[in-house]
Amino acid sequence: NCEKLFELLDSFAEANCRKVQYIWLLQMMLLVLCPIILEELVYALEKGGPCSAEHLRKRNFVDALKRQLHAQVLGKQSSGTESAAVVTFVKLCKSATYINNKDSNDILFVLVQSVIGDLKQILFNPLKPFSRGQDKINVDLELMIEFFLYCLRLNPHNNEVLKVCLNLLSPAMFHYVLVKALYRIITQKHLPWWPQIDIIYSRAGELRNMFTDTLNKVLQSSTFSTTPLRISGVTGVSTLKDILFNP
């Protein structure tokens, strides 16, 4: 069952630190499949409630992941596992979108709300764009798109991440994430409680300004510089012109 598999994976993770990015994610999804256990864990962590001895290991697992996530906010990246925590919690956020957001008391939303602030600071900090290296740029952008979609589906009318991505001073990769996410909203099948693209219509002026600003930068880079304009904050990736005109 899920509990036994969780414990087996926990032991495996201790002996295989380099694979925690896969193991932690699977463990978290196993907890999502056990809402009664998850409720006990979240209540113990967020409200200081009791936790039974049989679930103490699971409680420590969630607590350790939250600490790893916050360590990245503080810039303490020593073991390399902080990024694995980011991936795990973004996937947790994604799973929460499959629950009607009107059910705000669902325990999964409570857990997500406890980490969403850290995720925003890590993934959408204009002063320190998220990057795990040149070889993972596409995976990182996909992670940011997934988190952007979660934020939009959670709170479509007061979305801090949307505001950051629309800001002309934000890194170009944020603009790229915004456009890709909006394209998915238009083209992908959606659940009844997911917002549709019309919630962005009021932002048409800002989107138009972003497009014009980006186009001007690309044209200026091509005309006046021998160095192609690259996505700010990430080294060694495709030029902005390549990304915009050769998706």
Rank of each mutant, 00 (worst) to 15 (best):
I231N: 02
N60S: 13
S104N: 13
Q77R: 14
I186W: 06
T88M: 11
F130Q: 06
S95L: 07
A96S: 14
T81I: 15
E142Q: 14
K4D: 11
M29A: 04
P50H: 06
K66D: 02
K217G: 04
K58V: 00
I99T: 12
Y22H: 12
S238P: 00
T223Y: 05
L143Y: 09
V177Y: 03
L141W: 11
L182K: 11
T88P: 07
R184P: 00
S52P: 01
R230V: 09
L240R: 08
C93M: 13
S170L: 01
K136P: 00
K19W: 06
Y183G: 07
K76Y: 09
N1Y: 01
S114G: 06
E82T: 02
A15V: 14
Q21W: 11
E54V: 13
T187R: 10
K102Q: 14
Q21P: 00
K47Q: 15
C34F: 03
C151K: 09
N101C: 11
K241P: 01
Q134H: 13
N209Q: 14
S11Y: 13
L168V: 10
V139S: 14
K94L: 00
D242F: 09
P171N: 08
I137S: 11
L166E: 07
H175K: 10
L168A: 01
M28R: 05
G117D: 11
L207C: 15
N159Y: 12
P35H: 03
L56Q: 08
W24H: 15
D63T: 02
G48V: 10
C93N: 03
G117T: 10
L38R: 02
L178W: 01
P35Q: 03
F148A: 05
K189W: 00
N105H: 13
Q27I: 09
F61S: 05
A71M: 07
F245R: 04
L127H: 13
L182D: 05
L127I: 00
L65Q: 13
D242C: 13
I116W: 01
T226M: 11
G117K: 06
S225N: 14
F174Y: 15
F130G: 07
F130R: 01
A181M: 06
L9K: 10
E206Q: 15
Y201E: 12
H55V: 03
Q188Y: 12
E39Y: 00
C165A: 09
A64N: 08
E3G: 02
A15K: 15
M144T: 09
L30Y: 02
A71L: 09
R59M: 10
F6T: 03
P195R: 06
S79H: 12
R230S: 08
P50R: 03
V90N: 07
E142F: 07
I23S: 02
I243V: 15
V218R: 02
L154R: 06
K76A: 13
Q21A: 11
L168Q: 05
F211M: 11
E7D: 13
D63A: 06
L244W: 15
A53K: 08
L152Q: 07
L244D: 01
H70M: 05
